[in-house]
């Protein structure tokens, strides 16, 4: 599903993103990527969605060779991924419904499919009643739910979340995490970068710890505390 083979990313200004990472994430897994700021969590995710390209090594995602990819292939890779960001990234001039529908319009879904799938996705994240609201009329937690609905609506094989709860209060954070777990239980591979200790500890999932761009531990049913 996701495979890094000795992948290294050094930015043009010399900063090391990740260094010699080799890791394998199987279909249906739920994986936390943890580590302090600057440890390479974001770079790890950026390599998965081809926001960055490895300077060395190989990255395979959903059958695409990210390290060696034609520009025209990138949209198709991203369609196979659902992506959730810390800062939400909703289109401000579209309603919650339209934001979710947009992800389907991009893949040229029929309007009947859109009318059927979008309410389902909004229902799944518990936002059916706010379908007509614009992002600035929604709370942070609600916006993140819309983002989740958007990420899910095309049934991606992999869901990637970069600090999805970074801007949310603890209670909402737990709700979002529960949603991610629910999504995972439906068969979607979920990769979450975070530094929310309490959440990682309570969920008992696979935990990959990065430091200075290198994997220093990879534990099944791990927690933040047993990182060494």
């Amino acid at each position: 599903m996701i495979r890094f083979v000795d992948a290294t990313k050094i930015y043009s200004n010399g900063v090391i993103g990740v260094k010699n990472i080799t890791v394998n994430i199987e279909k249906g897994e739920f994986v936390f990527i943890i580590g302090p700021s600057g440890s390479g969590k974001s770079t790890f995710l950026k390599l998965i969605m081809h926001e960055e390209v490895p300077t060395e090594g190989e990255v395979y995602v959903n059958g695409y060779s990210v390290h060696d990819m034609a520009h025209s292939e990138i949209p198709y890779l991203r369609r196979s991924l659902g992506v959730v960001f810390q800062d939400f990234r909703l289109l401000p001039n579209k309603t919650a419904y339209e934001n979710v529908a947009f992800a389907m319009q991009i893949v040229e879904a029929t309007s009947r499919e859109i009318r059927r799938q979008v309410p389902l996705a909004l229902g799944l994240v518990g936002l059916s009643k706010k379908a007509k609201a614009y992002p600035d009329q929604l709370s942070g937690g609600e916006q993140q739910r819309v983002v989740l609905a958007r990420a899910l609506v095309n049934n991606p094989a992999v869901l990637i979340a970069d600090e999805p709860t970074g801007n949310l209060d603890p209670k909402t954070s737990i709700e979002i995490m529960n949603l991610l777990e629910e999504i995972n239980q439906r068969g979607t591979t979920v990769v979450v970068a975070t530094h929310e200790k309490s959440i990682v500890d309570s969920m008992k999932k696979r935990v990959i710890t990065l430091e200075h761009g290198e994997i220093i531990s990879d534990v099944k049913k791990g927690s933040y505390s047993n990182e060494n």
Partner: peptide
């Protein structure tokens, strides 16, 4: 440009 960026992350083709 931010909107364009989002569109690209969701997998929109250049033509779109």
């Amino acid at each position: 440009r931010r909107q364009i960026e989002i569109m690209k992350y969701v997998g929109a083709l250049d033509s779109f």
